[in-house]
């Protein structure tokens, strides 16, 4: 228990979390601090490329084993199954309509790539290794939840738009293309490629992550400020309970797969996180009747800060305890 508290304290006082907190406070206090849209986009491209590349290099060093395929299949199944749990919980805990509940459930089945990056950073800081292919698993976990949510809506008799255009947007969204593309580049070029671009890919990573999370704090704070009265106490409770349930499902899958402590923690973190980039765009197209204020505020304003501050240290403590890492 002392270990978990020490880790949580250490995490809370890290530059990454304090940068996020600064953004959150600035937005809630109505400061005019803002990160230009183009700068935020450039930083997200950098972070995704870096994390994908490092994952590819790691796989190139350690080789591919059956674990990659098995973990990807488990990730897809987790992403497809979690919306059903979330949907049931939302119907019990909140008064959300079927369409709103399904839209929220899709966000919780999919993953937050920024939470994954933050988890990655914590592992690196702690000197804990993990399977490099978790990057590919992250990409595979983005889309299945959307299909589950649309199926939940169609069962209720409501029509959801799912056309070829949307399929392409979901499967080829920027974060998936960048993660997988950088992963493949890292895999092909291996340690030699890493040696060539290490100064750019590795050293500035945490500093860029701090600035990016400052922006995420601003976005989360503005979202919370602008959506007063949107979320009920039940919905807020869901935003904290659901990530823990997701993490437990990820833990069961990770233990069954025999992942390393770091890999287990990352799978738990992904299963606990809620998307706020890929899924909101898909929901605006497929389920325009769903209220974006509900799902964006829950995913970005409640669950993301929870995972960033308390969730990640908790998942790491559980993962290391269970695997003896």
């Amino acid at each position: 228990m002392d270990g978990i508290l020490a880790l949580a304290g250490q995490n809370l006082l890290s530059p990454i979390i304090l940068s996020f907190t600064l953004g959150l406070i600035a937005a809630l206090a109505r400061s005019d601090l803002s990160v230009p849209e183009a700068a935020a986009k450039a930083m997200s491209i950098y972070l995704l490329f870096s994390i994908g590349f490092k994952g590819g290099v790691s796989v190139s060093e350690h080789g591919v084993d059956a674990g990659l395929i098995a973990t990807m299949v488990a990730g897809v199944l987790l992403s497809a199954a979690i919306p059903f749990v979330a949907f049931g919980l939302l119907r019990v805990m909140t008064g959300l309509s079927r369409v709103d509940a399904a839209a929220v459930a899709a966000h919780y089945g999919s993953i937050s790539i920024v939470t994954f990056v933050a988890g990655n950073s914590v592992l690196t800081t702690q000197g804990i290794g993990f399977e490099g292919y978790m990057v590919a698993v992250a990409a595979a976990m983005e889309a299945p939840a959307i299909l589950s949510a649309l199926w939940l809506v169609s069962r209720g008799g409501n029509g959801a738009r799912m056309d070829a255009h949307l399929w392409r947007e979901i499967m080829l969204n920027a974060s998936i293309v960048l993660l997988i593309g950088a992963f493949v580049i890292g895999w092909i070029t291996g340690p030699r490629g890493m040696a060539e671009i290490q100064a750019f890919i590795v050293t500035p990573f945490k500093g860029v992550l701090c600035l990016f999370l400052l922006d995420m704090g601003l976005v989360a704070g503005r979202g919370l400020r602008g959506s007063r009265g949107v979320l009920t106490a039940g919905a807020l409770g869901f935003g904290v309970v659901m990530p823990v349930i997701g993490a437990l499902l990820g833990m069961i899958a990770g233990l069954a797969l025999g992942l390393s402590p770091g890999g287990l923690m990352l799978l738990m973190t992904m299963a606990a996180s809620a998307s706020y980039i890929a899924v909101p765009a898909a929901m605006r197209v497929a389920l325009p009747e769903a209220n974006p204020a509900v799902y964006l505020t829950l995913a970005l304003g409640v669950t993301f800060p929870f995972n960033l501050t308390l969730g990640i240290p908790l998942y790491l403590a559980i993962a290391t305890t269970l695997t003896g890492g």
């Binding site: 849209e37 935020a40 976005v219 980039i277 929901m283 974006p292």
Partner: peptide
Amino acid sequence: SGQWSREGQVSRAG
């Protein structure tokens, strides 16, 4: 649908 702003959009969704 309420107020919205281009500022701080993490995706094109909003």
